[in-house]
Nucleic acid binder design. Sequence first.
DNA 1: AGAAATTATTAGGCATACCGAAACAATAGG
DNA 2: CCTATTGTTTCGGTATGCCTAATAATTTCT
Lengths: 237, 237
Amino acid sequence: MKTSTPSSSIEDYVKVIYSFTEWQRKPITSTQLAQRLGVANSSVSEMVRKLKDQGLVDHKPYSAVTLTSDGVRLALSMVRRHRLIETFLVRELGYRWDEVHDEAELLEHAVSDTFIERMAAKLGNPTRDPHGDPIPAADGSVLMPAAHRLSELDDGHTGRITRISDDNPELLRYLAAEDIDLDAEVEVVGRRPFGGPMVVRIGSAPAPREFDFADEVASALWVHSDAGHAGCSVTES
Amino acid sequence: MKTSTPSSSIEDYVKVIYSFTEWQRKPITSTQLAQRLGVANSSVSEMVRKLKDQGLVDHKPYSAVTLTSDGVRLALSMVRRHRLIETFLVRELGYRWDEVHDEAELLEHAVSDTFIERMAAKLGNPTRDPHGDPIPAADGSVLMPAAHRLSELDDGHTGRITRISDDNPELLRYLAAEDIDLDAEVEVVGRRPFGGPMVVRIGSAPAPREFDFADEVASALWVHSDAGHAGCSVTES
DNA sequence: AGAAATTATTAGGCATACCGAAACAATAGG
DNA sequence: CCTATTGTTTCGGTATGCCTAATAATTTCT
Ligand SMILES: [Mn+2]
Ligand SMILES: [Mn+2]
Ligand SMILES: [Mn+2]
Ligand SMILES: [Mn+2]
């Protein structure tokens, strides 16, 4: 069926469906969609039917929702918008990285393509946002950094922070207060016994600092391995 | 009745009601509101009832619509938003003055107060937008420049362009192409006979240029009289 | 003043996007 | 394997904001 100009709700649905599989593996279910969007399950069922009618998703009743190629195209364009706006807010308007998400969530639906492309040009066509998420290019190509959750790395592993999950603003404020930012060096020192926090060394040679990270922190940080230092125990099933 | 957070439709209605009286005298009627908003008269009747319920307008059936003090407050905040965004688009993103209106019309509803105030600070708290319209301050105070339509000035009158009505993008493009901008010096040379165009000299001493302005152009340009050069024939009834 | 034209309001509907409750599938446990 | 729980969809209904057509008030013209 016809696509016309998608409503902002449609745009958000598609963006959430895409984002769910960006760093995970499995496609999203109705309930997960509902949770992420903050709407009732019944609303999702209705909207998914609409998305399917418009050729944006594939869906068989009672199973997960996946994007069609049209859906991916729309999602990438929304993700690009969102992340460019976040970058702009930080670089040009002095926002902190914990403040940008909600603003971008609304602006992404309101600005024109012209606005986006002029903004991108002004920013020098950045390829990642303030949280390290990759910004898809205008042609839809994405450069996904190879990264793993800090929480899943073996003891002794070293690397740099590539991405920080942006869905908990409080966590972002904590990290900012501790002066932990993208590209910081990290080393897994070890783990406290009985499922306790992870001990991590952060910072370069002169002044490395040690932190005890609760699992919520360690699994929000994504690490790119140092060159030359081989993989880790994470397996992609 | 309660005000909650006004919808973007409500914001547009209030803004249009305010703007109508900004450079004119009489309050707006239902039909004029409908024309400006591009909706049916019946839609206006319904929305005006809603605006009245929310305490934003005064209205007696079959008569014009006026803003309450709450309505004025909301309108000024929307006008401030709109004009700051226009200024930002021109100064920071390289938009031309005929391109900014539509973009601002959507953005004004989507950005936060924080965004507006950081933008204003970055721009140095400008007091007029790219078309010369005054930007209300955050506290609601407005500095209206004393200006009259060029079309209503007597022959021989001189002054500077203070404002250019922004509701015809084509006219704005024409003026830009002729290099006519805010603050340009103007002198009314005379009028061609039988309701013909107005002859106007524009530009400073070294290279003044003469133009024949159709009434649509002459009434879109607003002029602030030169200091020391007394009034004109316009009377405020 | 009375009829005609204009302007405004009301009535009845439509589209979008949400909700809670009810009905229906799928999976998990005993 | 059959039932209980969980997940998903369907049903009926709400709130906005828009429309056209019908009606009502006001203004204008003769
Ligand atoms: Mn959004
Ligand atoms: Mn982000
Ligand atoms: Mn608007
Ligand atoms: Mn303007």
